[in-house]
């Protein structure tokens, strides 16, 4: 103990100079913004996380995609399996990042920072909204990185497509973050979290049609896919990509059939609306949970 603690400075603290302003919606927005900003700062700092989140899509597209294209080559003439996989892999990688981001609230609890947030004079709702939007933004940024790979698999860098994808990805991420928060509200320990992530994330991505065409599936599997909300985000993403591919229309139509409910084609906008409404509902429940907790 050779370091000497510095003496208190002689500057006098002027109490009257600080006024905490009045509450209201402006205060909520400020809280939401700062919670979001923190998510972004932490994402930017975590180079390893960014890199590791890129490994998965690269493996999927270039290893799995290449290997499987030798098997599936004949079923999608004029289209490489890697190209087919691209939108699904994009959605899957966003799915993982989003849920991880939201669940960082369990880390916040573990390391105490959650308490700093919960005891502040703001509605807890704004903290959760900030967490969800921040997580969605982080996942979208991760999606941008995956989008950079598009050129390698024959997907053009079309501005309209990219813009559409970013919006869709953001909506998907938001809903997944809300789901992550809802789950995290009930989890007290990191270990439990890891188990639950495994139990939820893989089924959500495997049953979304992200990695295979959803037509010609056995009935039971088709039913599960149609019940999975992620399906309704993956389909718009794939539709947006396929609209800009230079491939035989028949092939594209064949491997990206419209989603139907008892024969009715579900329009893309309705699919996205479904995703958003579900996200808002889950966020509302999560906020209730956090309000109830002491």
């Amino acid at each position: 103990m050779t370091t000497t603690e510095p003496r208190p400075s002689t500057a006098t603290l002027d109490v009257a100079s600080v006024r905490v302003t009045e509450g209201g919606i402006a205060q909520d927005i400020r809280a939401i913004k700062v919670v979001m900003a923190r998510e972004l700062i932490r994402f930017r700092q975590d180079k390893i996380r960014i890199a590791s989140a890129l490994v998965q899509p690269v493996l999927f597209i270039f290893v799995l995609g290449t290997a499987l294209s030798s098997v599936t080559g004949r079923s999608m003439p004029g289209l490489s399996f890697r190209t087919f996989m691209f939108p699904g892999v994009l959605a899957t990688s966003v799915l993982f990042t989003a849920v991880f981001s939201a669940m960082s609230i369990v880390w916040d609890r573990e390391f105490g920072f959650l308490r700093e947030m919960l005891v502040a004079p703001v509605r807890r709702g704004s903290i959760l909204v900030g967490k969800a939007l921040g997580g969605a933004l982080v996942a979208t940024l991760q999606g941008v990185l995956v989008l950079l790979l598009a050129g390698f698999v024959g997907v053009p860098y079309n501005p309209v497509m990219i813009l559409t994808l970013l919006v869709e990805i953001f909506l998907l991420s938001f809903t997944l973050c809300a789901m992550g928060l809802l789950i995290a509200a009930r989890i007290q320990q990191m270990q439990t979290l890891m188990g639950i992530m495994q139990m939820i994330l893989l089924p959500l991505s495997f049953l979304s049609g992200a990695l295979y065409p959803v037509n010609n599936l056995p009935a039971w599997l088709h039913t599960l896919v149609m019940l999975n909300p992620v399906t309704y985000a993956v389909h718009p993403v794939r539709t947006a990509v396929f609209a800009h591919l230079d491939a035989p229309a028949a092939t594209l139509a064949n491997i990206n059939p419209p989603l139907t409910w008892m024969g009715w084609h579900v329009p893309t906008l309705l699919q996205l609306a479904l995703v958003v409404v579900l996200g808002l509902a889950m966020l509302a429940v999560a906020i209730r949970q956090f309000n109830k907790a002491e």
């Binding site: 905490v20 302003t21 400020r30 700062v34 932490r42 105490g112 308490r115 700093e116």
Partner: peptide, 26 residues
């Protein structure tokens, strides 16, 4: 608190700024 509640990934100033925004300080 008895147990630490800082975000150790942030800088000291960022921790205080976060606090100032949450408390809606002028």
């Amino acid at each position: 608190f008895q147990d630490p509640t800082l975000d150790t990934y942030l800088t000291a100033a960022q921790n205080l700024q976060f606090h100032a925004d949450l408390y809606d300080m002028d």
